[in-house]
């Protein structure tokens, strides 16, 4: 067995810089995904048939095709359709955001439907308008219930972000792959990347638990 982690020591800072790249993609994509998710969920439970169809078709397409295909379509395909150049970072953020929006919308929809009907009736009886009822009464309760599922989605997003490697974004994954190639130490550099991803997921999990504890204080 030929393992020597000291061989990649000098490249460790280089790989670590990828954390920032990955976080930037995941963070922005999560925000986009969350915003799209809420909008789609509201369309799905709303009265307007047209919105409902749009949201269902959107979800069906983004869940029904590979993420990497969506990423490549946005990165390589868009310039062919429109006369614009999409940067790798933009393509990554859009692909992940659009994709997780589909998943998050289903999570939020289930969360909204699980809120007791009595809450809607009490709001209606008080004359609270639909928008305010959703924002202040229904969504806060829904979010509390779906927090574990949302955390799950963000964890998935963090790990899946590694596929931006294929369009050349120098995230943690790509950097460790490059270091592996340069030093002929693939195992060491990839394991190192794996440890970074794992620690990031652990941190996310802890944050999720802390938020959940905070939200459950009213129980």
């Amino acid at each position: 067995m030929n393992l020597d982690f000291t061989q990649i020591t000098s490249s460790i800072p280089y790989i670590l810089q990828g954390i920032g790249v990955t976080l930037k993609i995941v963070g922005v994509a999560a925000l986009i995904g969350f915003a799209i998710g809420i909008l789609l969920a509201l369309c799905k439970i709303g009265r307007f048939k047209g919105f409902k169809w749009f949201a269902d078709i959107y979800t069906s397409i983004f869940r029904g095709t590979p993420l990497i295909l969506q990423l490549l379509l946005i990165y390589y395909g868009t310039p062919q359709l429109f006369d614009i150049k999409v940067s790798a970072y933009t393509a990554a953020v859009l692909a992940f955001g659009f994709n997780s929006g589909a998943y998050i919308s289903e999570i939020i929809r289930a969360g909204i439907l699980a809120v007791d009907r009595g809450q809607l009736e009490a709001s209606m009886a008080l004359g609270i308008p639909y928008k305010k009822m959703m924002k202040d009464i229904v969504l806060p309760q829904a979010l509390k219930n779906i927090l574990p599922a949302l955390m799950n989605e963000f964890i998935t997003l963090t790990k899946e972000s590694a596929i931006v490697t294929v369009i050349g974004v120098t995230d943690i994954m790509r950097r460790s792959y490059i270091v592996g190639g340069n030093t002929y130490r693939y195992f060491e550099s990839l394991i190192f990347a794996g440890v970074i991803y794992y620690l990031m997921v652990i941190v996310l999990t802890l944050i999720g638990k802390a938020v959940e504890r905070r939200m459950r204080r009213s129980d």
């Binding site: 009595g118 809450q119 009736e121 009490a122 209606m124 009886a125 008080l126 004359g127």
Partner: peptide, 17 residues
């Protein structure tokens, strides 16, 4: 109209949060 008509429910329906 609902502003003028208060309602109290069997299951209370207070906002838990």
């Amino acid at each position: 109209v609902r502003e003028q008509v208060g309602m109290v429910f069997q299951q209370f329906n207070l906002f838990p949060h």
